[in-house]
Amino acid sequence: MSIDTQLPDETVHVASAISDEVVIELASVNKWYGEFHVLKDINLAVNKGERIVICGPSGSGKSTMIRCINRLEEHQAGDIIVNGTEMGTNIKNIDAIRRDVGMVFQQFNLFPHLSVLENCTLAPIWVKNMPKAEAEKIAMEYLERVKIPEQAGKYPGQLSGGQQQRVAIARSLCMSPTIMLFDEPTSALDPEMISEVLDVMVGLAETGMTMLVVTHEMGFAKRVADRVIFMDQGEIVEQNTPDEFFTNPKSDRTKLFLSQILAH
């Protein structure tokens, strides 16, 4: 991982804005795919404004864990509470949580049949019943923030990967979420596009957004994270501040993982 080149000034940690309020709480969450125990007794509390980076080897359950937070995956045991709403089987609760939680995917998942602007205005119009003109105004503001307002009329298929991912971020932000989930947002990108997406994410961190980011971009973790979580085989093995995590990992498993990932 090219820690040194990704971010211009990675030594300066983005100022933290953590409040006492717990916005996400996972209590003894367990999940199985058939017989396969993919999440094992996960306990995690995330405070408002906190920025968490989640890393771990492939198949360790990182995606599964954050996808449980907006119910793209269903957990079988334990409680998940988001913004005070208990995630049950109640559709109303799930919808309320999804309105508050934005998600950015590895494969962007933009809607190919809609223009960039329409991608951004769709949910505000159809979920929040916002008038079209207002939705477009907000969408243009966010497209400006991710630095691609000039692409508003194009279709996703006409954009580069980095541009598409920035549109995806803007699209999520248009719903004014209080929490953002990122599942390996830069893994499908060419190296020169990674930094343009990470820049946007750093900018977002500076606004005090609560963020859960699954990523292997350790430079980003050092610069932005308030806490780094290391997962393996469905468990949270270790969690710590980025300083401690990188310079002084406690478990052998973490050391091995770090030595592999930093060896590049």
């Binding site: 559709i91 998942n109 769709l122 159809w126 699209r171 719903m175």
Partner: peptide, 21 residues
């Protein structure tokens, strides 16, 4: 693509809106 369903759900679209839009 399955990702299209997931993106729509993650934005809070309900089943019928996801299908129709």
């Amino acid at each position: 693509n399955k990702g299209q369903y997931e993106a729509a759900q993650a934005m809070g679209l309900n089943f019928w809106k996801m299908m129709a839009l």
